[in-house]
């Protein structure tokens, strides 16, 4: 499929980029791995494409002011191979390794991955394919073709967001009116149709991700279930982080974040049950049970929601068992 026509801009600086956003119906392209496919399928037909690839000031990994700061245009390949990331936050490097395929990791950026659109078996299809169905809610139709409700149930499938949310990372958004910090929790709308603050007519550009350095002391991992060893989006994924006291048993803080099973990366309350407790196999099982009850997957992909929930539960059990260094 050929790409639709659009006007194209590739400003060399952020300063020059921001005014272009006000032209209306503009879309920002970073690595392009999500957007180009959407364009070929005519899921989007923006008048303007604004590429950030020339903006060198958005490509960096530095420690500064108590944060690990990562420029939004940093590719996942750079993140997975960065000695700094691997030393401080190995779970982030590992999450980057789990995204799509090694080739796409060389193109895709951390900013783009956070802005990943939600996905659904009725939405992520060609222009021709969609003619056989009613227009789905996400594409501007009246009803969701999965639930038949006036709501979108497309699933967020990003692999980078869960672990960043577990560390309470925040992002920087540059806009014509100024630059602001935003927590990732605030960035995600949990609305499948417009999954984040910059989706649909973006008024700003995501420029940086900040991870508080104190979180490097936490035991963390991102764990992902999929049918094949590469390429696939998660059928369920979990970002897990626990702050263990020096004895390695008492849990002082914890986070469990789900992906692939809902409208956004879900920060689950079940993690609270770990805090202040000694981590045991029994406790992990009950936390996982509770976490699995908090997610409500619907059939947006090939795998049934019942299996997704069961698989998510096992991800949490195995992941926490691993982090707490308990025997299986």
């Amino acid at each position: 499929m050929r790409l639709p026509e659009f006007d194209f801009y590739e400003p060399p600086t952020l300063q020059e980029a921001l005014p272009l956003l006000t032209s209306g119906n503009a879309r920002i392209i970073a690595g392009g791995t999500d957007l180009i496919v959407a364009l070929k399928r005519r899921l989007e037909t923006p008048a303007v494409i604004l590429s950030l690839h020339k903006i060198k000031e958005l490509d960096y990994i530095v420690q500064d002011e108590g944060y690990l700061k990562i420029g939004a245009m940093t590719t996942l390949k750079k993140i997975k191979t960065s000695p700094t990331v691997n030393r401080l936050f190995p779970a982030l490097a590992q999450a980057a390794r789990e995204v799509a395929s090694p080739i796409l990791q060389g193109q895709a950026t951390i900013g783009g991955n956070l802005c990943l659109n939600t996905r659904c078996r009725y939405y992520n299809q060609s222009e021709f394919w969609r003619q056989s169905q009613q227009t789905c809610y996400k594409a501007g139709g009246e009803k969701c073709l999965v639930t038949h409700k006036q709501d979108c149930s497309a699933s967020f499938s990003g692999d980078m967001a869960p672990i960043l949310l577990a560390w309470e990372a925040d992002i920087t958004i540059a806009a014509p009116e100024g630059t602001k910090q935003m927590s990732l929790r605030e960035f995600f709308t949990y609305n499948s149709k417009i999954p984040n603050q910059l989706a649909a007519n973006p008024k700003g550009i995501l420029t940086e991700v900040r991870i508080p350095l104190e979180k490097k002391e936490w035991s963390s991992l991102y764990t992902k279930a999929r049918l094949r060893g590469s390429i696939d989006f998660p059928l369920a994924g979990a970002g897990l982080a626990v702050d263990l006291d020096p004895s390695g048993r008492l849990c002082r803080g914890a986070a469990i974040v789900a992906t692939g099973v809902g409208p956004g990366p879900l920060v689950l309350e079940a993690a609270g049950d770990l805090v202040g407790q000694e981590i045991t196999g029994e406790l992990i099982k009950s936390v996982a049970q509770k976490a699995a009850a908090e997610i409500h997957p619907v059939r947006t992909g090939r795998i049934g929601p019942r299996y997704q929930r069961a698989r998510f539960k096992t991800l949490v059990i195995d992941g926490l068992t691993n982090l707490a260094e308990l025997e299986d």
Binding site: I29, G31, V37, I49
Partner: peptide, 13 residues
Amino acid sequence: GIPTSSCLTLAVT
């Protein structure tokens, strides 16, 4: 030097 899917890359970039 980086493997790239040329089908997802705008030539102009």
